[in-house]
Design a protein around this nucleic acid. Structure first.
Lengths: 194, 194
DNA sequence: TGAAATAATTGACCACGGTCATAATTACGA
DNA sequence: TCGTAATTATGACCGTGGTCAATTATTTCA
């Protein structure tokens, strides 16, 4: 049986998404309430859950889209050739991911796919990041004794670590990036150590 | 003004903790309900929140204690001298952390301290892990071109990465450990690569 | 010992995510 | 154009974490 999606349904979904983005723009991600969205959009609460599995799924969608936009930016321009350029290129991404504690939590929760068949938007951006980073590594002036994909996964691991530590009250945004650089220096250019 | 804690209060808190552990033992961490605990313990719901900031704080306490016990085990015996021994020594810890999706989420949420002054139990175990691991690294046959503490932080980052990827339906427990080993090989013994 | 001060407990109440039987709307064949 | 089936929307309702003014228990001290 082929399910026919009615035009009405598509419009409702679009309206919910639009409203969600407005609410988020106004009050931030963590303050987003399903009840506020449905009230603002003028639909019943049940309608929301007919369109999105749960609140987290909506967040996955919206945050995933934001990350993708930032990855688009990161892909533009000449490939980073060294450590500083690499760290700099990833700064907007990490800044967004740490702009709210709630965002970081959602991202970590969705960074691994729940089911093989259905990889969520955020999990897809993680895979995309690996692809992009390993291409940079292949062309740039980095360690060559291990596979680029493995190196890229390491970059991701260190980025998560630096971001997680950022949420200690002691650490600020600047420390996050410099810590990240320290990690990558040891990871990507081991021979350059003194 | 010195706040005096009454004996009654200490007993109530102990009863809540005991009951919580029983409930968890019976149904798992993720299925733990505050309402079930207070009902079983025979106290009002408000009493629970007079003793613990929120449900997460209780989890922080109980899971932190469990991790500490596993770290005690890991500290015993001769220090791991090579990669295989290191990975093997950390297996019980990683197995516990990934035994439930909910546990891993709680751990990640608490791995960074929220406030400088008050570092929670789980965050403390993360610091303790760094100390233990860097001592192993100092004595064992591992890379010496960077500080042991930095290397230890990397181990933690890769462990988290391996555990996060474990929750993809595709990956099983065995893959988690072998993936972890692959990471550590590139991280701890870069010169050994072909 | 009794009354005031402090500590601990209570449970009705709220917030908010999520469910589901029912109703309304739309699509489609005759 | 009507009747029927499929799709979508509705909102009362539930589960559960968390709050707080009121009540009860305990301590202090004259």
């Amino acid at each position: 049986m082929i399910k026919q999606t009615q035009k009405r349904s598509i419009e409702t979904r679009a309206k919910l998404l639009r409203t969600a983005k407005e609410v988020i723009a106004a009050h931030g991600y963590g303050a987003m309430r399903v009840e506020e969205i449905v009230k603002t959009a003028g639909v019943a609460k049940g309608t929301f859950f007919a369109h999105f599995k749960d609140k987290d799924a909506l967040m996955d969608l919206i945050i995933g889209a934001e990350i993708n936009a930032l990855l688009d930016d990161a892909e533009n321009g000449t490939d980073p050739q060294n450590l500083d350029e690499l760290v700099l290129r990833l700064q907007p991404l990490m800044n967004f991911m740490t702009s709210e504690r709630y965002i970081f939590d959602v991202i970590v929760r969705h960074s691994g796919a729940a089911v093989k068949e259905e990889i969520g938007p955020i999990a897809q951006t993680f895979e995309r990041t690996i692809v992009i980073a390993s291409q940079w590594l292949a062309k740039g002036n980095f360690r060559k004794d291990v596979a680029d994909v493995l190196l890229a996964e390491g970059i991701q691991a260190f980025a998560v670590q630096a971001m997680a530590l950022h949420f200690c009250a002691i650490n600020n945004k600047e420390e996050m990036h410099s810590r990240f650089k320290t990690y990558l220096q040891a990871w990507l250019t081991p021979s350059s150590q003194t």
